[in-house]
C-alpha cells in the first residue's frame, strides 16, 4: 500500500516543468499552452475555409457547435448581460477541454489549484466589475447593505466565499475523479477503467465545467440586477 500512496502523491503533485530566471513554470501552465495552441490551430484551420454559400456538413456541424456554446453562455446570463456571454462561453470551452484532457494522457490543468484559483479569481473580478459597471461605485457599495444593513458582513464575506467555493468545487471534483481513476487503474489497468473514465473524465468533467460557468453566470446576473 505504501507504494500506492507514494505513486498517488507523485501523480497528484504538479511538477515544475522548467525554470526561467528562477521562476518555475508548472505543468498545468504548459498543458494550458498546449490546449491553447491546439485550439488556435484547429480554429484557424476550420474557419479558414468557411463558405457563405452551400456550406458542407463539417462547416454546418462546426457552426452549430459554436453557436450552441455561445447560446449556453448567453442563455445563462440572460439578455441583460450579453457582453459577458462570450467570456462564459470561452471559459466553458477551456474548462471542458481541461477537464477531459486526462483521456489523452495529459494531467488535467484543473487538477492544479493555481488554475482553479485563477479561474475563480477572474470570475469574482468579473462579477464585481459587472456590478460596478451596472450600478456605479456608490450603487455597488450600497448593494452590500441589501436587503437589510445587518447582513452587510455576510455580503462582504460572500465576495470571498463565492470564488473559494467555485475554486474548491472544480478542484475537488477534478482531483477526486483523478484519484479514483488512479485507484481503479491500480486495481486493474486494462478494461475496467474504460466505463469509469467515461463517467469521471468526460461526463463529470463537462458537468463541472457547465456548473462553474452556470454559477459564474448566476452570480453576474445577481450582481447586475
Amino acid at each position: 500500500m505504501g507504494n500506492l500512496g507514494e505513486s498517488l502523491i507523485e501523480e497528484l503533485t504538479c511538477e515544475t516543468v522548467f525554470t526561467v530566471h528562477g521562476i518555475g513554470i508548472s505543468e498545468s501552465v504548459v498543458v494550458t499552452w498546449v490546449i491553447m495552441a491546439a485550439v488556435l490551430l484547429a480554429s484557424i484551420l476550420l474557419t479558414s475555409r468557411l463558405k457563405v454559400e452551400n456550406p458542407g456538413r463539417g462547416q454546418l456541424l462546426l457552426e452549430h457547435a459554436v453557436v450552441s456554446i455561445q447560446n449556453i453562455g448567453t442563455g445563462i446570463i440572460g439578455e441583460e448581460g450579453r457582453q459577458y456571454g462570450a467570456y462564459l462561453s470561452a471559459i466553458l470551452i477551456y474548462i471542458g477541454i481541461a477537464n477531459t484532457i486526462g483521456i489523452l494522457g495529459f494531467k488535467p490543468p484543473t487538477k492544479d489549484m493555481n488554475v482553479t484559483a485563477a479561474l475563480a479569481l477572474m470570475s469574482i473580478i468579473l462579477i464585481e466589475f459587472a456590478g460596478i459597471h451596472k450600478k456605479g461605485v456608490r450603487g455597488w457599495l450600497k448593494s452590500f447593505a441589501e436587503p437589510i444593513a445587518i447582513v452587510t458582513p455576510i455580503n462582504i464575506l460572500e465576495v470571498f466565499i463565492k470564488p473559494l467555493s467555485l475554486c474548491m468545487r472544480l478542484f475537488g471534483n477534478v482531483i477526486g475523479a483523478f484519484v479514483i481513476m488512479k485507484l481503479i487503474e491500480h486495481i486493474l489497468p486494462w478494461v475496467l477503467p474504460v466505463p469509469f473514465s467515461m463517467y469521471f473524465d468526460i461526463f463529470d468533467g463537462l458537468i463541472q465545467a457547465y456548473v462553474f460557468v452556470f454559477l459564474t453566470g448566476l452570480f453576474i446576473k445577481e450582481a447586475i440586477e
Binding site: T32, W33, M113, N114
Partner: peptide, 14 residues
C-alpha cells in the same frame, strides 16, 4: 497541487 504561486498569475494571463 496545493500551493498557490506565480503560476496563478500565468494562468490568469493565459
Amino acid at each position: 497541487m496545493l500551493r498557490l504561486d506565480i503560476n496563478l498569475l500565468f494562468t490568469v494571463i493565459n
